[in-house]
Design a binder for these strands. Structure first.
Lengths: 203, 203
DNA sequence: TTCTGGATAGATCGCTCGTTCTAGTGGCGA
DNA sequence: TCGCCACTAGAACGAGCGATCTATCCAGAA
């Protein structure tokens, strides 16, 4: 058990949350915003209200092990967001469009910084950090499965559901990047509308 | 005028190409593969068969100025790829699917490393390097315009063409990232098929 | 031939990186 | 009460970063 966190004014300080969890949350947020190479361990520790010693105590594998844990965290968080959006409507086309709308709102509210939690890290570490790649792969698979489950529930054949989930997730991610660069909700909202049209073309 | 490049065995060495161009090409490739923070100026110089002095001679603005030039280079290269793919068929749906196929082949042949030349850099520098963001923004706009022109040629209304171009580009980029992480052509090929279906839904 | 300035060359600077190391703290079971 | 151990704390290390600097090279103008 950690002693009480007496960090002064760190952004992720939360008295009810243990040091390890605070570090993972800070790492997840910073990786999302600045990527793997651009994020230093010392900054993560400072933002989490922890010290370097604590970070290496919980993650003896260093930066790579911490990144893997952070990606798993972002994985589950994004999956929850996705599920919440999909549950907002029975019709799969409407549900997908609602997902896009929610992502757009969240993006604008974060000043266009909080996009997909793994894209940046995944691209930077391609072919150079297998553990991290594996975590990113698992995250994408997980999100595709969340989408595929919704489509199957709505009567899509297994293969159609799987493939559609792959395309919808990819399109949402691509539109999210576009929205971030353009600093506009429009690309995500347009993608949502077009994806709804695509989904409807099966019925 | 530069003297003859006498770099020994650098990858981008090409006797017919000036030092500045070799540096830009190497920078573009490395930014694409490892992102902005992960790519050192010294490595760029080495890969280009140039020295640090030459790099700072041509790019007194340092790493940021070099990155902007590299992104403009990747911008035009990718636009050419896109145009070539779109010119391969009159039917816009077939053309888009062909684009996806070509991107998938190129990706596999590069061992899944050569994806979109700006995504990684764009995400890493969000809100922290305005010049670079501007270059990425211009690149995305340029590629969207290439797609929109094709759609207009094929009889789409201006607004439909613009919006469809936005979604198609985003979907291709997202599918490309997915293909890179999965080390498989399938996500790009599936996205191509679905995008063709979407395009056809207008006719 | 001499001069000039674009281009090359690489040593060097201050800084930050990821990591390691030792010391210290405090709650809890024996 | 004592000892243990999970945890905190931060100084220190070598390596590599981006950037600066001086020295040199060499084609073509004068």
């Amino acid at each position: 058990m950690q002693t009480k966190p007496q960090g002064v004014s760190a952004r992720d300080t939360d008295v009810a949350v243990g040091t390890r969890e605070r570090v993972v949350r800070a790492a997840s947020r910073l990786l999302q915003q600045q990527g793997y190479e651009g994020t230093g361990i010392k900054l993560i520790a400072r933002e989490a209200g922890a010290t370097l010693g604590s970070v290496y105590h919980f993650f003896p594998g260093g930066k790579e092990e911490l990144a893997v844990a952070a990606i798993h965290h972002g994985d589950q968080e994004f999956a929850d967001t996705l599920r919440a959006g999909l549950d907002s409507a029975d019709d799969p086309a409407v549900a997908v469009e609602n997902c896009a709308r929610r992502l757009a709102s969240a993006l604008r509210e974060s000043e266009w910084t909080d996009g997909c939690p793994v894209t940046s890290t995944a691209l930077e570490t391609l072919g150079r950090a297998p553990r991290i790649q594996e975590a990113c792969h698992a995250a994408l698979r997980n999100w595709q499965e969340v989408l595929a489950a919704k489509f199957r529930e709505c009567g899509f054949a297994d293969e159609d559901a799987e493939e559609l989930a792959c395309t919808v997730l990819g399109a949402l991610e691509g539109a999210e990047v576009t929205s971030q660069v353009f600093r506009s909700e429009q690309p995500l909202l347009t993608a949502g509308r077009h994806l709804a049209r695509l989904v409807r073309s099966w019925s």
